[in-house]
Design a protein around this nucleic acid. Sequence first.
DNA 1: GCGACAG
DNA 2: ATCTTGTCGC
Length: 223
Amino acid sequence: MKPRKADPARFAVTPSEGIALQKELKGLVRKHWDGRPIRHIAATDVHFPARSSARAAVVIVSYPVLEVVETAVHEGPVTYPYIPGLLSFREIPPLLMAWQKLKIAPDLLLCDGQGIAHPRGFGLASHLGLVLGLPSIGCAKSPLFGSFDEPGPLKGGRAPIRDGSNRTIGTVLRTRDGVNPIFVSVGHLIDLRTAVRIVLSCTTRFRIPDPLRAAHRLAGGNL
DNA sequence: GCGACAG
DNA sequence: ATCTTGTCGC
């Protein structure tokens, strides 16, 4: 067989293949922001109403106003189990189905999960950003990989997330006074500073950035 | 071998 | 993610 070139649209069928694919695709992730204007941001989330069904949602908001301008959903069968570190193989297929229904082409993606703050530097946000060829930011509610200190207690408080080599791979960010922080990391085509700035500018009065909250609601989650 | 582990 | 009411705090 001819050796396959890295193809972001290819999906693993076994955990070991998924891991191999992540290691391969990691090399294509770009951690630099080109300064392009942001007019629309797409937030994504997937909900699992039953064990075998997935409901993916995409919400596009204007930026920086954060007005919802378009939404898309897709509900279908689950095709991959939840395995820590392999979340993208479970959530990307339904997300792409919803994505196809969009009319507006967003400038940036906000994903509910890690970007490069991942055991192999290739979390959901990196994978989806690479597949769609768009800048993306990982925004998770809990840590998956790396070590960090407790950030300051007030909104804007932050601390670096570091890998085993002491490299910064993300930011633990307090988005409101006194709430648990969120975990922000580069997905693709962006730098960490810009990612944190955008996440903060998308957060008005809740812990979770407004666009992600809207996507979470559309997908079927509570609050 | 043991524990940790996005959603 | 999901199972789920009241309750604590601003």
